[in-house]
Write a protein that binds this DNA or RNA. Structure first.
Lengths: 230, 230, 230, 230
DNA sequence: CATGAATGAGGATTCATTCAT
DNA sequence: TATGAATGAATCCTCATTCAT
């Protein structure tokens, strides 16, 4: 079984075993990248396993050796992409000490780093759908939930750091979900539909500003009337 | 061809022709509803034409008599759903004279009327994807663009009615897209993933409040400097 | 049953019955012509009954009222064409009193009259095939047999008129079949494949000359030894 | 892709690769033969892919692995048959040094070798047609054109060898086409319609004699009445 | 007689997956 | 490990034919 956890048996390993390990990982990598491009450009259903194998310059059998099935390929891919996305956003947020500024920077990074440098990955994460009740959909949910949870934590961190509190009547979770929605659709709209990658910086700034405006509204500001939405 | 425009020959029609016309529409309706349920529950790819025909209690041939092919079925369905959604939102907005209040009400209607009463339609509009470069994807884009455009117009109407102006540095279009994103993902998250239809009223209120907060932030407030980010 | 022999009941008929009779025949004619064009241009299998009905400006049901089924359509068509072809050839042959000259003239008429004026009919007679063991194939055989038989009779007539006799060792039937083959393939080659209708006169002359040469070789020439081939 | 040109890598091949190659060819052969029988007996349209696969004792998928589609099956088959036919005729003709005798022998071989030993192939070549403007029809044309061209060359060779010339007023091409027509229809008539395979030798002799008579008529014969060739 | 909506068996083709080598 | 030929269930779609109106 190739799914053995890497690192478990790393201490006692012959050289050739190490090389094998390395080659295995390289092979997995190659296949994953080939599939990624195909899925992004053709869509999950249109991309056939043989096509993927060809693109990765391996045999179909090899693909099935490293991946349980086509779904598994997509799931592992989405996990990677989810991890990548969270790294990018998390790094930026933490680099600014969990402030509102950091929160905004993370938003900018979403557009300027993730969308611009990993458009195929964005396409897969935001477009691919295989049909309800599939493992894939569950996985998508997990990834989005993690992201949402990250955003939620960030919101809480910011509010703590700012020494302000959320107005009790709002569900921070809904806000987090909303923010994810903004990121997702703006990326989809301008990257996948209009292919305006070069404008993403500006577009991202506007979107982030909109979010920041909505968010700052949510904090109690003791000495002052809220800008009353009504 | 059953696709003849209705109304063309409506004045002079024999009774039997009228009945036929009615029956034809009823049949189309039946098939569309059956397909809707199947697409929403099984997904586009998993739902077979025979299954659809069975559910509609007609033969496969009958489905193909009224619809060019499976894609056509989905496209016509999406068009209907798009129209339905825009009607619901537009009616609410106009009923309140294009005010911010109307804008919010439209938002509430999205969750309380559209999502709650037409969850299958929401599933189809927000989940179904067939793969890039398909007619379906184009159609989806058109529908979303129309909705986005509606939101954009609404924003402009509100800003005019409030005698305030957008802060120049924001792209209203990006805001509109963002709002669509919020609606979409909140619906997706709470309706399709968590199936919390009964909580949608509250959830919707929070989401709309968040939007309203963000939006009111966008209007120039004469006596005060913008919080200029950049 | 619309297949009643025409003329049977012609003596006692009301005027309206007569008109009906006429209209029926006109209708049959229209459908047959429409089908002819379609079969010639699209082929038997590609031409659908609905297409035929549309082209004839009647309903599918009407086609099925006048013709048992698609095969019947083709068979009746082929019968007509066979009759037409035999008329053209026979008329020419008889007009010259059954001489070799008449035989040649008939050959010329095949190319210059039949092929040139009825190319669609030629296409149907020579190209259409539906698959073995069909009624159609049997019908084709009958028609070709009739034509072959005509040619055979013509050969005999000529030989009688010329007061010469066939060399005993030749089967006149094989010659007749051969002649049919020449007509068929030359027409196919130059009309259906190369569409050189305008050259058919010359081409036909060559083919006929070839046939005449072969044929005149077959007759015993009393004062002389046969040129024994082998 | 199994269509790799044979011979490319024939020098350095492992044993197993060689065996694979052999098995592949055997498999293609098996499928082709099964399809041939089915096409000849049932006709192209009536023979289903599953039926073919069953007859070849492989799965449908295997058929599609070796052949692009049903048309491809027929085309490759026709190519083979065309090649076979031309080999048989050409061999005979060349074996007699391009004389009129060789020409006749080739004719006899057509009936006695090709028609008698390969009746199914004859059925396919002469009967199967799928409808105008198809790849198949184009292929048929190519094959017939090649055969016609062979006949034409043979005629020219004979006339050169006999030191006689064609009478200028005849188009040798039309003669060649005519000869093809004779072969085709005589075979069709007596083999496919009347199934008189056992009489084909005699029938063939008559047909060839008829052709030879027509042909010898075409040569200029300077000093002499008799046409005695040889 | 005419209509045209409805039928449904039948057919070609695809493709994820397996397994002998 | 790697290969790639083989599998066969699944699926979309066509179209000759029927029949209620």
């Amino acid at each position: 079984m190739p799914e053995k956890k890497p690192g478990d048996d790393s201490k006692k390993m012959t050289k050739s075993a190490l090389r094998r390990q390395r080659e295995r990982e390289k092979r997995v990598e190659t296949i994953l990248r080939a599939a990624e491009t195909l899925f992004a450009n053709e869509g999950f259903h249109k991309a056939g396993m043989e096509q993927i194998a060809d693109a990765a310059e391996v045999s179909v059998g090899a693909v099935y050796f490293y991946f349980r099935n086509k779904e598994d390929l997509l799931i592992r891919m989405m996990d990677e992409i989810g991890y990548l996305l969270r790294s990018i956003l998390g790094r930026e947020f933490k680099a600014h000490g969990g402030t509102l500024e950091g929160f905004k920077r993370a938003g900018h990074a979403f557009f300027e780093v993730f969308c611009v440098n990993y458009p195929e990955q964005a396409a897969i994460l935001f477009r691919e759908s295989v049909g309800k009740s599939d493992l894939v959909e569950q996985r998508r949910k997990v990834i989005f939930d993690q992201c949402t949870s990250d955003v939620l934590q960030a919101l809480n961190t910011v509010s703590r750091n700012q020494v302000v509190a959320f107005k009790g009547r709002f569900s921070a979770e809904v806000i987090a979900v909303s923010i994810m929605g903004i990121y997702e659709r703006v990326a989809y709209h301008y990257l996948l539909w209009q292919d305006r990658a070069e404008d993403l910086t500006d577009i991202g700034r506007d979107a982030v500003a909109f979010i920041a405006g909505g968010v700052s509204n949510l904090f109690e500001e003791p000495d002052q009337e809220g800008r009353g939405e009504k």
